[in-house]
């Protein structure tokens, strides 16, 4: 385990993330221009979609059904467990509990990419259709949690608007669009664009993580405001969901690499799609809670410690079962 952790800690993305945090701690002026950040995320998501689509073009349908089913199941389960824990153990009010649960029910694409990169570096190549699973997990979690909140608190806005917003958000357009384009162009098309999309991928991810470090560190001051419970939740809930994801993954026939990535997806908390949706649907919920929990607690935890832990769990389950 320590060996795995050490490998992860010295990976370029974790080191870049740490540098980002340090940049803020020493109060450097440095930050990535907003447009560069935006361009990098477009590049990463589209590359991910394209590659996944190409893999999908020669994947067997039978191999995907099981993992797809457990992914949707996880998408329905994680917002509910999050809500119940926050509401009843954490004593958060309905709006806050549901808004935070929306973040933990959805998925962080960067955590997903970090997990893919990690297991590949460990020699446990995940299944090529993992990006397809990512798109399945993105939206149900947000909707279920927001629906709980809106039912309890009332108000909000039409579900149709939230649905439209999530389904047409950048993440979904680039991922789903990339999958379709990748699927259609196949291996031959991929060969033509892979120097750009494959060759630069890890480098782009490294710069992106540098900025994520800065963004997360910006919220460190808010840790004092959110209280100990949310701090524990931000670490404990991912561990529970991650273990569940790893188990579901292995049961559905995924490899150790695939199960680790599924675990990381289940464990991750969205910070791109969920915040605006929660802000609009549950306006009384305090954004400091959900943004700090997902960005300053859960994201760093997953990238630094969580992913190697889920990998170990998946390995143990795979060996045992």
């Amino acid at each position: 385990m320590t060996e795995v952790l050490r490998t992860n800690l010295l990976s370029p993305i974790v080191l870049a993330f740490a540098l980002g945090v340090l940049t803020r701690l020493v109060r450097s002026e440095f930050q990535l221009p907003k447009d560069v950040y935006s361009a990098l995320s477009i590049y990463l998501l589209f590359a991910l979609g394209l590659k996944g689509g190409v893999e999908l073009s020669h994947a067997s349908y039978a191999a995907i059904v099981g993992p797809a089913f457990v992914t949707v199941l996880l998408g329905c389960l994680t917002p509910v467990t999050s809500y119940l824990v926050l509401r009843h153990l954490g004593r958060f009010d309905d709006a806050d509990a549901a808004a935070i649960a929306a973040h933990y029910g959805s998925v962080s694409a960067v955590t997903f990419i970090a997990a893919q990169t990690f297991v590949t570096s460990m020699g446990a190549e995940p299944e090529g259709f993992m990006p397809t699973l990512l798109t399945l997990l993105e939206s149900p979690g947000i909707h279920i949690a927001l629906a709980i909140g809106v039912l309890k608190v009332g108000g909000g806005r039409p579900v149709r608007e939230t649905l439209h917003e999530i389904l047409t958000a950048r993440t979904m357009v680039l991922l789903v669009g990339g999958l379709v384009v990748g699927f259609l162009m196949g291996e031959k098309g991929w060969h033509a664009v892979s120097p750009f999309f494959d060759g630069g991928f890890k480098g782009a991810l490294t710069i992106f993580l540098l900025e994520m470090g800065i963004v997360a560190a910006d919220r460190l001051g808010d840790l004092r405001k959110v209280g100990l419970f949310l701090l524990g939740f931000g670490i404990g809930m991912p561990l529970v969901h991650g273990a569940l994801g790893a188990a579901f993954g292995i049961l559905s026939g995924l490899s150790v690499g695939g199960a680790t990535v599924l675990a990381a997806m289940a464990a991750s908390a969205s910070y791109i799609a969920a915040p605006p949706a929660a802000r609009m649907s549950l306006p009384t919920a305090n954004p400091t809670y959900y943004l700090t929990a997902s960005l300053a607690i859960t994201f760093p935890f997953n990238v630094v410690v969580g992913i190697p832990v889920y990998y170990q769990i998946a390995r143990a389950l795979h060996g045992g079962g």
Partner: peptide, 9 residues
């Protein structure tokens, strides 16, 4: 309300 409340991207 402080700088943060409106600080979604």
């Amino acid at each position: 309300r402080g700088r943060r409340v409106g600080e979604l991207p």
